[in-house]
Design a protein around this nucleic acid. Structure first.
Length: 131
DNA sequence: ATTATGACCTGTG
DNA sequence: ACACAGGCCATAA
C-alpha cells in the first residue's frame, strides 16, 4: 500500500543502510524512495527518527551542511558523531562530500543516465556556508 | 477546511 | 556566476 507511513518506512530503511563513515543527502533518499521533489518530507521523517536510534546524523543536505544539527539538542553533537566515524569536514564546516558521500545502490543505477552539472552547484556551496 | 512552516531541490532570469 | 521563485509532501495551528 502506498501511504505516508510507507514513505517514512522507506526513508528509515534507507537511512539505516548508510554505511558507517559515509553520508547521504535528503534528495538522494527522496529520489531513492521514488520522489525527488519531497526531500523536505524526508527531513520530517528523520525528525521523528532522531530518537529512534537511526543514524540520521549521516544525512546532510546537498552541500554537506549539517542542517539537521539543530534537532540534535546540541549543535556540536551531530558534528562530533560524524567525526567519531572518521568523517572529515571542510573548512566551511561542511562534510567532505567527495570522500564521504554515499548513494543508495538503486539510485546509483538511476542517476547513471543523467549527469548534473555539479560544477555549477558546487559554486553555490560557498554562498550557503557563508552563514 | 485553509493557511503557514519546514533537517530541501531544481529550474529559470 | 548569482539571485529569485516554484514545487512537492507532511505536520501544526
Amino acid at each position: 500500500m502506498k501511504t505516508k507511513q510507507d514513505f517514512f518506512d522507506r526513508v528509515y530503511k534507507l537511512v539505516a543502510k548508510i554505511p558507517r563513515g559515509k553520508v547521504t543527502t535528503y534528495g538522494a533518499i527522496a529520489e531513492a524512495c521514488g520522489i525527488r521533489s519531497s526531500a523536505r518530507t524526508v527531513g520530517w521523517a528523520l525528525n521523528g527518527a532522531s530518537e529512534s536510534g537511526l543514524p540520521c546524523h549521516r544525512v546532510v543536505n546537498r552541500f554537506g551542511a549539517l542542517t539537521g544539527k539543530i534537532h540534535f539538542g546540541d549543535f556540536h553533537l551531530m558534528e562530533d558523531m560524524l567525526r567519531s566515524e572518521g568523517i572529515e569536514f571542510d573548512e566551511d564546516g561542511c562534510v567532505n562530500m567527495e570522500k564521504h558521500l554515499w548513494i543508495p545502490t538503486k539510485l546509483k543505477a538511476k542517476m547513471k543516465k543523467k549527469k548534473t552539472s555539479s560544477a555549477v552547484r558546487s559554486a553555490k556551496k560557498p554562498r550557503l556556508s557563508r552563514q
